[in-house]
Amino acid sequence: MTIPFALFFVCGALLVALTIYVLTGGADYGGGVWDLLAAGPRAAAQRDLIERALGPVWEADHVWLILVVVILFDAFPPAFAAIMIAMHVPITLMLVGIVLRGSAFSFRSYGGGRDRAQREWGRLFSIASLVTPVLLGVIIGAIASGSIPKDPRHITDFLLPWMTPVCFAVGLFALALFAYLAAVYLTLETDDAALRDDFRLRAIAAGIAVGAIAGLVLLLAHREAPGIWAGLTQRVWTWPLIWLNGILALAALYALWARRFAVARVCAAGHVALVLWGWAFAQFPFLIEPDLDIYNAAAPPITLKILAGALAAGALILLPSYRYLLKVFKSRPKHRPLSADSPVERHSQ
């Protein structure tokens, strides 16, 4: 079956938006996790670095999620409705997490004043950063493992379908991936060698945890989610994808070990993107197995064509702007004086 161009384009945009959300917004959640786990003599410096890294970008990063939602309900309304009905409870909990994470972060950044209040907001921010990715993972796990009932209009059980080991394993997996990404990115956010090494070790530990949890997810998927397991193992494109994924994961760990942080960032981001694509390709063409696929859940062709046009036009404005944002805040100053090692001085540049 050939895919009409507009449908193909919209599916691609959905996957790209979700990928960028995970690579940027996901890492922002991971930053909150490391805020919670900040320890050792440099705990305060770690938290400060995380706050400076997230501050300018987290809101723009967050909008990728809104874009995913908007594309989903514009292009695949029945799939959106089915997910919203069956996943009402975890989505509601995730929203509470999103609200508390964002508000607490901005209250901490702009609240000024006393240390105690700042610490309380910081704790709320970091706890919400820990819980929200787990819930996002649970929702993705439920979609991937075929836990969304056939006709959501008549479902009566709103808890059992997602309260399964495989869903929670995917939740943990998402948390580990986000924390891993954050730690890798944070190695490039500071010139302080000791602080960088803190995050280097955290990144290596998180990377190993990612591998272990990935094994657990696959084991449970094999038992509980035969559809996605078959997709992962019996398609022509899945094996190259899995091999490439493994190579990138190991390359990222090696680069971290060898302190090649820029290389590690590229490899880790590529690894996480391929995990996501592995899921997408394994499930293709289903949005929700086994009833809704990209053909029978698609909006009429006219809607898809106009949406594709709007996405292309929007990307022309969006991508340069987003790049500019990342360039302003995420690239190292080119003409850095030699004494710029102290964080105070860098901050004031």
Binding site: F73, A75, F80, P300, I306, L307, A310
Partner: peptide, 9 residues
């Protein structure tokens, strides 16, 4: 969704 997805996008 297919009708008013546009303004939302």
């Amino acid at each position: 969704g297919a009708i008013i997805g546009m303004p939302f996008s």
